[in-house]
Design a protein around this nucleic acid. Structure first.
Lengths: 242, 242
DNA sequence: GACGCTCTCGTACAGTGTGCGAATGCAATC
DNA sequence: GATTGCATTCGCACACTGTACGAGAGCGTC
């Protein structure tokens, strides 16, 4: 039975101490950078190999010399995003502060690259930057005093929360952006529809009113994020063995 | 400026008290049901209008009589999933128990329909079942004693956590399933690659060893889920005004 | 000059979502 | 019963997708 590679990383590792083949790897880096630019600017659906090729002034199929296929390219782009995320470990910070920095950094990276959030659910992250980050996260909670499986559980709880909030936040932004309206305009324009659908749902309706009247929606989102984050961190602290 | 509909729900609400046109809506229900069957059985990528058409014994383009386009169809399917989720409210349960039931139910629904998790990040959920669920969730935390924005924050914290863990859990299952191997086999087969990539990352490596030696991976996943869930619930409880 | 290796790209194939317009079937009206 | 009109189906076409294939270009080494 031949081995089944499920990602770039598996393939690379299996090929052994890979000869980096300098030119090829720098070209690959350029391709990945262009990919991220295109994704950031126009979204996941706008990325096609042909468009990427013209952006790079090369034929669409030439890209395949540096990259096995489109999902591998996306894996590489994802790992680049993981490289942007800060996790200050070993700097004398209290673990809750370090975890908070990490959480905010993760959220911001995902909001900067909304396409990344859609890919997160699709495939596990096993690239070098993702592994470095995972290792740092585990060290963070190990130093905090967790042991054994609890380390893994703590890391997962925190990242799961951040990924979850950020996914819905970014989904909301994208939907609004798709109409070309500002969030405030969107709320006003859809007022009748939303209100109608909320007939008989007073609690939801009250939330809608609060949202519509609030000042800056981005600020609300940050408050919301901070609320949940402190819940998670408190819950983790309560599970620290003493 | 003509209104920009961003989803089925906006369009339906704007069309006013819609004449349900009985035949059409039952056919739409059949289409949605077939869609979900196809998605469950073969995944998001396998859903094409042509395949769905043959499954329904109709031409691909006939589907467009009942459904405006593919993303609207997916919105409808998503809302069906929301309909499967239990949230026992007003039954005399302690709020933490009810929240826990909800969390497990949400996780299981998403694991039953792994495609749904990938769509969750893409667009906000505004279908009728989603709204009912949101309303129930807000009532749950209102009854628990939260006030004002904290109600919304509590709901979001809990659902964000569940969505986040479940996304990575299901991503892992999908990746393993794509190789046709069992999770145990996958770990064995990829041992050398994984271990190599974890050189110099002792903490991560220790996690890998624990995972590889553990009995049932599904059980581990449930433990992990329960750990984070209790963190979140504890954190929420600590924020209850008293 | 001949080889081999790295790299580019044109062409082609099978597939996608969906707009359009012609065709069908069926119910109500004359 | 014939005719009209509407609901519904569907074949075709278009522009587009990822990528396999194979022909070629440029270049360093014998």
């Amino acid at each position: 039975m031949k081995p089944q590679y499920t990602s770039v990383w598996g393939r690379l590792a299996a090929e052994g101490a890979r000869p980096p083949k300098k030119d090829a790897s720098t070209s690959q880096a350029q391709i990945v950078r262009a990919t991220i630019e295109l994704l950031d600017a126009e979204g996941l659906d706008a990325l096609s190999m042909r468009r990427l090729g013209t952006k790079l002034s090369m034929g669409a199929t030439s890209i395949y010399w540096y990259v096995a296929n489109k999902v591998e390219l996306l894996d590489l782009a994802m790992d680049e995003v993981f490289g942007e995320i800060a996790l200050p470990v070993g700097g004398g910070l209290h673990w809750q502060e370090a975890a908070s920095v990490f959480a905010h950094s993760l959220r911001q990276a995902l909001l900067r690259h909304p396409w990344a959030i859609k890919l997160l659910g699709s495939r596990p992250s096993l690239g070098p930057n993702a592994l470095i980050l995972a290792e740092k996260a585990m060290i963070l909670f190990e130093d905090a005093g967790f042991h054994g499986p609890a380390i893994d559980h703590a890391v997962n709880t925190l990242t799961a929360y951040v990924m979850g909030v950020t996914a819905s936040e970014s989904g909301w932004y994208e939907m609004v952006a798709a109409t070309g309206l500002s969030p405030k305009q969107w709320l006003e324009q859809n007022e009748s529809a939303v209100v109608a659908s909320m007939a008989g749902r007073p609690t939801l309706h009250a939330l809608y009113e609060r949202t519509r009247e609030s000042g800056d929606l981005r600020d609300d989102m940050i408050d919301r994020f901070a609320f949940g984050l402190s819940c998670v961190l408190d819950g983790l602290a309560a599970r620290l063995p003493r």
